[in-house]
């Protein structure tokens, strides 16, 4: 069982850090869309870089490079 201290938000990852998706913490259509983009529990992801001013966060998920807005990235919980 995962300890809650190990779970963090995707935006808290460091540059180049790899982690696994714990869950998408959103029930609405956007939550569904994030899951559909491949952020299903257990998926390995890597944070590539962040844009300035809480802008895009660039993530490699399932072999493709996605840029998520800060607010969207907040709803993806990960563990390492």
């Amino acid at each position: 069982m995962l300890q809650s201290s190990m779970i963090k938000c995707i935006s808290e990852l460091c540059k180049k850090e790899t982690a696994c998706v714990y869950k998408v913490d959103r029930e609405d259509a956007l939550g569904v869309r994030l899951l559909e983009l491949g952020f299903t529990p257990g998926t390995k992801i890597q944070l590539v870089r962040r844009a300035p001013q809480q802008g895009f966060i660039e993530i490699v998920v399932r072999g493709s490079r996605l840029a998520l807005g800060w607010a969207e990235a907040q709803s993806i919980m990960v563990y390492s």
Partner: peptide, 15 residues
């Protein structure tokens, strides 16, 4: 777009 998204968010728009 990637670079400017953060700034754009501040004024209520997006990249």
């Amino acid at each position: 777009v990637y670079l400017l998204d953060g700034w754009m968010k501040k004024i209520g728009l997006s990249g």
